[in-house]
Design a protein around this nucleic acid. Structure first.
Lengths: 215, 215
DNA sequence: GTTGTCGTTGACTGACCAGTCAATCCATCG
DNA sequence: CGATGGATTGACTGGTCAGTCAACGACAAC
């Protein structure tokens, strides 16, 4: 196949993905039809099935593209030699910036996958847990170093940390909470402060306490 | 109508609701058919439609029954003359105990309504926001009294508080997190400690700071 | 120009399932 | 009794939509 043709095909696939993202964000995954995606992309119905095996696969692709970037970011952050508090700040910052940069994408990821406990979250359970696991690892390391107290299991801390961020994003997505430049920047600090408030080793017990079962 | 007949009808309605709860918890709202509910309840298909206008109404009923109890609990808690931290502890405790007492019900409420941002959460948006509003009010009052610092808006605190609890329940529901008597009791303290850690007035600014738009 | 390869089209099919309804049952009451 | 009316039944309908497929088109290779 010529390079041009191959490139055109890749582009068309992208066009369909981007169109699907807009449609999913607007109507929701279950409420929209495959024909809505095709219309939005300006292609024939059948072409969606030329590039994807199913409607589900379109959403899976959108989710994984972004989630894998986030996992890589967490991995990279963890490798740096900085305090855990700063690592958590970087993770919160990345997620919040992702929302600022592409609200539709984050809306779809959260609403249709991450929070959709019965359907897509099941499919991507491992990818989602991998994020929890890495955050928990950051906390566990900080506990071992004495930066965080050990009263809270790392798993629990990871869950509440991510849960708090996700809920704030949900608040923005559905307009409970004002979302502007300033609010978003403040949110990064606040969510870290709130969670770390219960973790900071101020008067906390030393390490080697409380059992820590694997997530 | 005789009392016996009226009672029998009310009972049958309950039988259907309870069966629906089990089916929703097991298969998920969208994945189950109305006939599954009827089968589980041991009644004919059409009877479900005698007591409910639609499949949606069955879930709405289950959700509202429980949610209204929770709203009442929050209202009642707020009326008491106790520190805000203790009020938040009572709310976390109620939600966690609800899960302990009837895991299926909380699973369905969270998975199918509260977290189902595109469908039922829309319908019940006001009821859900009412809970946030009351929690935010508790925080705001504590800030006015100087118990909590004012760096965080009450809305933000309410969102992260509820988000953290919900995520922990989700962790239990899907087995990320061990859930036994001891863990559940610890969770009550931990979730309050984590959130209040960022709110406690230790070294915080005094009241009359930061604007507080209504949720 | 001819041929082969993909990209592209959109009408069609098959399955699914919420909700309807006409018929039947049966406790109660006059 | 027999009449009344709510409770109960389950076969059926209507609409929806994901996914298929046979045909067509456009471009590259030779």
């Amino acid at each position: 196949m010529s390079t041009t043709r191959r490139q055109a095909a890749a582009d068309k696939r992208r066009v369909i993905l981007d169109a699907a993202l807009r449609v999913f964000a607007r109507q929701g995954f279950h409420a929209c039809r495959v024909s809505d995606i095709a219309d939005e992309a300006g292609v024939a119905y059948g072409l969606v099935y030329h590039y994807f095996d199913s409607k589900d696969e379109v959403l899976d692709t959108l989710f994984l593209e972004r989630w894998n970037i986030m996992l890589e970011l967490i991995r990279e952050t963890d490798r740096q030699q900085i305090p855990a508090r700063q690592k958590l700040r970087a993770i919160a910052s990345f997620i919040i910036d992702s929302y600022r940069h592409d609200p539709d994408l984050m809306k779809v990821i959260i609403v249709e996958v991450t929070r959709a406990a019965n359907s897509f979250a099941q499919t991507h359970l491992e990818a989602i847990r991998e994020a929890y696991r890495m955050i928990a690892e950051i906390v566990a390391q900080a506990q071992a170093d004495g930066e965080f107290k050990v009263a809270v299991t790392p798993q629990f801390a990871a869950l509440t940390f991510y849960g708090a961020i996700e809920q704030v994003l949900t608040g923005w997505i559905f307009g409970f909470l004002p979302c502007n430049e300033r609010e978003c920047e403040r949110a990064k600090d606040l969510v870290v402060e709130m969670i770390c408030g219960g973790l900071d080793a101020v008067g906390g017990r030393s390490a080697a306490d409380a059992p820590q079962p694997a997530i």
